[in-house]
Amino acid sequence: MKIVRQKSDLRDLTHTWRRAGETIGVVPTMGALHAGHLSLVEAAKSRTDRVIVTLFVNPRQFNNPEDLAKYPRTEDSDAEKLAPFDVDVLYVPDPDQIYPDGFATTISVAGVTEGLCGATRPGHFDGVATVVTKLLLQTDADLAFFGEKDFQQLQVVRRLAADLDLKTRIVGCPTVREEDGLAMSSRNLRLGPDARDSAPVLHDILQSAAEALSRGAPTTDVLDDARSRLVAAGFTDVDYLDLCSDPDLTPMSAATGPGRLLLAAWLDGVRLIDNVAVQPTG
């Protein structure tokens, strides 16, 4: 696996692969890799000839400077985790390769960004959309792999790729969970022992609420009960707990079609997100 930091060096490699008729897959990350990321790498390996994993902690998608400062930087251990997967390139761009002096362009996606994390983290998805667009162009990828845990982000990336006529096809991959059901996330490392023990109840509550909604239970009652259960379990704030249509994330008053129940809540000073599918039965 080559570690590349300059886009010119990366393009030398991708041009060589293109001349050989090879396809390229990319897994964009901010590092602190876990089994969820590695499942995306496995998916990329199974569907493309060459695989690039990107590692860039993107300052433009952080609303809180403290959150950015706390975000783990673990390049060496990330490279070790990738070694068994025979990845072709770990692209760790220097900051000026993404945001050179005078950089003045922002990609802003409407619609799917307007609720959920878009409402509670102003500007977050502008930062995501801008850096992902740059990474897709720099890597010249045919396929890009994103996890469904960040479901709103996945829809944002799909929208920008379609709207900007990017050649890269966006592939969503299932959420990977710990044995106790907690969705894998680099943020989980920041939970204290007691909070980590409590955290799996988030998915349990989300799953039971989704099942109730699928059976036709009143949405307001189900969501109010779920919020109360979260608070009782030690979650200090619930940023949102919303039923939305899949894939356009329009708010739904009842589970009348394919939907997602999406949640962001705080535990031990850590913001956790998760989502589950809601499909009406009967």
Rank of each mutant, 00 (worst) to 15 (best):
G257C: 03
R47T: 13
A277F: 00
A209G: 00
A141K: 05
A129K: 06
G127E: 07
D140V: 11
S245C: 09
L82F: 07
V57L: 12
A226G: 04
Q152P: 04
Q279S: 07
T220L: 09
A83M: 12
S39W: 00
G269P: 02
N275M: 07
L206G: 00
S245I: 04
V87A: 11
F146P: 00
D142M: 08
I3L: 15
L262N: 02
F125I: 05
Q207N: 09
T250I: 12
M184T: 02
L223Q: 02
D239I: 04
Q6L: 13
D126T: 08
H124C: 07
R159K: 15
N275I: 05
S77Q: 14
M184V: 03
R271L: 02
D140E: 15
T113Q: 07
Q6A: 11
P200V: 03
L262C: 11
T256F: 03
D94K: 15
G21P: 08
T175E: 04
M184F: 08
K149P: 02
L82H: 07
L136M: 13
R227C: 05
V57H: 09
T74D: 13
V4P: 06
G257R: 08
D96K: 14
A119S: 08
S208M: 02
L33V: 09
V89Q: 10
S253Y: 06
L164A: 11
L13Q: 15
D88W: 03
L243E: 01
R260N: 01
T16V: 12
D9L: 13
R215Y: 05
D94C: 10
S245F: 07
P193W: 07
M184P: 07
H124L: 11
L82E: 10
F62N: 07
V201M: 00
P93T: 06
K2P: 09
A162I: 10
A161M: 10
A217V: 04
V4W: 12
F125M: 05
Q207S: 14
F125D: 01
R19A: 13
P258G: 13
E178Q: 13
S214C: 03
G118K: 04
A161F: 13
T106V: 15
R187H: 04
P122R: 11
A129G: 12
A209W: 00
P174N: 06
N58W: 06
V41L: 07
H34A: 05
R229Q: 11
S253Q: 13
I107F: 10
V51Q: 06
D274V: 00
A162N: 14
D204V: 06
D194F: 00
S39F: 02
D76N: 11
T14C: 04
I205V: 15
Q6C: 10
V41A: 09
S77N: 13
R60P: 01
G192R: 06
H37L: 05
P200G: 02
T236E: 12
D67S: 08
L55C: 15
L10D: 04
L213E: 00
L38G: 00
P200E: 01
G123W: 10
T48E: 01
G147K: 02
